[in-house]
């Protein structure tokens, strides 16, 4: 793999920088909001003394930079703090919610690429025709429609009116008990296949279709538009003309040669939109009661559970940086001119 030592060092430093910056900013923002987290910590029936005690435990009497110091010190030892809402450690909480989110995003991206890239190619080859114009309008609308709105509308149509797909959760709990389904990796589609549990697989698939399609809308439209623009550009390049001049059939020139030039940048931009999709996943998870990180973060935000909120932001910052690295490496594998 074409990865140099300098690249790894550079990436490691940028990871540290991004994580550090994101942590400090989120920490400060959550602390300057005028709320009283000690009330959440102490519970609804606490006495004044208990509340005062809670302020001490949470270091709320100290200046904000001292609070930050305590947090960073804990972080260096791998302790992401304890959720004020659930009283359980933040990191295991996030990690247990991770597979649900990852499964949703991965399925969404498979849909996005499987539909978006072919649509882009069709639009490029049929440039200027009715198909092209229709696709442009649809993709512009799709890329700009708010994801929570799409989520609500799709629920309304497919669950409420048509009643063909479930509107919430990852799997039918009754079915879990009946078939003895139990999570291994946390990816229900994979787990059910490992166990040979076809009814559970079908049910998990039916549950994931709506949220995944809703989530895939933005990256799908993005990849369709990028594929179209890049394909048109590549088709005008000399190497396409020379490949045709040497008599290679159009289908090989288009789908073997030109397509590869298109795929590399499309994958890169999709990778970057992966980060954006996590934000979309928050909305989608909330609407579809999907027990992932988005759900965890949203519940924490709504109850002023700041250690959990900062933990989520921290986690996503790390995740985002790692995704960027993966995208770089994929790009380098596809394009031999890229040296990392």
């Amino acid at each position: 793999m074409p990865v140099s030592k300098e690249y790894i060092i550079k990436r490691t430093f940028s990871l540290i920088g991004v994580v550090f910056g994101a942590t400090i900013i989120t920490f400060i923002i959550t602390r300057v909001v005028p709320t009283r987290p000690e009330l959440l910590w102490a519970g609804p029936h606490a006495t004044l003394e208990q509340i005062e005690r809670a302020r001490e435990i949470l270091h709320l009497n100290d200046p904000i930079y001292v609070q930050l110091g305590y947090y960073l010190r804990d972080l260096l030892t791998g302790n992401w703090g304890v959720s004020w809402r659930t009283k359980s450690p933040v990191l295991p909480g996030i990690l247990s919610a991770l597979p649900a989110t990852l499964e949703l995003i991965i399925v969404a991206f498979i849909i996005a690429m499987a539909i978006g890239i072919p649509l882009g190619i069709v639009a490029a080859l049929k440039r200027g025709t009715v198909i092209d114009h229709v696709l442009r309008v649809v993709t512009v609308i799709g890329a700009s429609a708010p994801v929570f709105w799409l989520a609500l509308i799709s629920q309304l149509i497919f669950s409420s009116w048509l009643g063909v797909l479930p509107s919430a959760k990852r799997i039918n709990e009754l079915l879990v008990i009946e078939t003895g389904f139990h999570p291994i990796t946390g990816f229900y589609l994979i787990d059910s296949l490992i166990q040979g549990n076809i009814p559970a697989f079908t049910d998990a698939l039916r549950h994931i279709i709506l949220p995944a399609i809703v989530l895939s809308f933005y990256p799908m439209c993005l990849s369709a538009r990028m594929t179209r623009a890049l394909m048109i550009e590549v088709l005008n390049e000399w190497h396409v003309r020379s490949a045709l001049a040497w008599g290679l059939p159009k289908r090989i020139v288009l789908y073997k040669y030109a397509l590869k030039n298109v795929i590399a940048p499309v994958v890169a931009s999709l990778g970057l939109s992966f980060g954006y999709t996590i934000i979309g996943a928050f909305m989608v998870e909330l609407v579809f009661v999907w027990p992932g990180i988005g759900m965890y973060a949203a519940m924490s935000l709504l109850s002023f559970d700041y250690p959990a909120v900062v933990g989520c932001v921290l986690f996503i910052a790390i995740f985002y940086t790692l995704i960027n690295t993966v995208v770089d490496i994929i790009h380098a594998i596809i394009d031999p001119r890229v040296k990392l």
Binding site: E237, W238, H239, V240, R241, S242, A243, L244, A245, W246, G247, L248, Y257, A258, K260, N261, A264, I334, D335, P336, R337
Partner: peptide, 20 residues
């Protein structure tokens, strides 16, 4: 095309697809 009559071009750097 390419079989009986073939062609070479002006800019050798642009003649080949860079990814192959």
């Amino acid at each position: 095309r390419g079989k009986e009559i073939s062609m070479i071009f002006q800019d050798p750097a642009a003649t080949f697809n860079p990814l192959f």
